[in-house]
Amino acid sequence: MSITVRNISKSYKDVKALQNISFEVKKGELFGLIGPDGAGKTSLFRILTTLLIADEGEAEVSGFDVIKDYKSIRKNVGYMPGKFSLYQDLTIEENLNFFATIFGSSLEENDDLIKEIYIQIEPFKKRRAGQLSGGMKQKLALCCALIHKPKVLFLDEPTTGVDPVSRKEFWEMLKRLQQKGISILVSTPYMDEAALCDRIALIDSGRLLQTDRPQEIVKHYPKTLFNVRANSMFHLIKNLKDYPFQYSVFPFGEFVHYADKREDFEPDELIEYLIEKGLSDVLVEKAEATIEDVFMELAR
């Protein structure tokens, strides 16, 4: 196991940031911690990177205890905090060299690991980090986190506030790192990124809702979902919420994801009801559940 978390709890004053969290990340796995802001993701990352001490429970990272062996962990993990944490007044090159030396490594030594990523920012190596675009900062931060060939990589919300193009590129990079044998724990508030992980844990308000492979999690959605569409989104949602048999109504892209309380639900009945309410172009069709549907179901 690369990461083992057993019954970890952590509170700040009267806020329970983490409640009895347990999970494991296998060697070479890309594991996603999926949940909104304030779910407790950052606290968990800080406990695992030895920056915080949990109130209860224990955790190991690549075989080392997070409290007793904190020094060994600090040598063996790469950490990219949620906030961009590099020196803005240093250039790309100086940042990399600095992190290389404090980890007793050098840029050349682990060429194979960061080369692919570094090549993309190399043309700007004389530019100060403060003047880079969001996507480039993120790549630089990843390079810095990788500079000492860590066995485990911790990435706390690396894609927050980054545009979809940079996000896609970033996930492609993570996939390639994974193939080189690095275990990766990554957190994200974007539910659509869950599908890119080997396994995920859904986390909300300090509680772990479910841990599994994304496909399995989706498969276990308890209800049958329907896509509903009509000419006016606002009135559609309103009327669906007034429908006595509705179980859940959530806008989803151009559709509304609708689940019914009854087992023997007939879509035609709903269409009739909606038309009666003055809506037109009504469409009701079966839909596939997504991670987001599961999350909302579990967090209800």
């Binding site: 909104p36 802001d37 506030g161 959530f250």
Partner: peptide
């Protein structure tokens, strides 16, 4: 940004 999916949808309902 960063808001949970349920609140995000409530937010969009307010926008609608």
């Amino acid at each position: 940004g960063g808001v949970d999916p349920i609140t995000r949808r409530q937010f969009w309902e307010m926008i609608y």
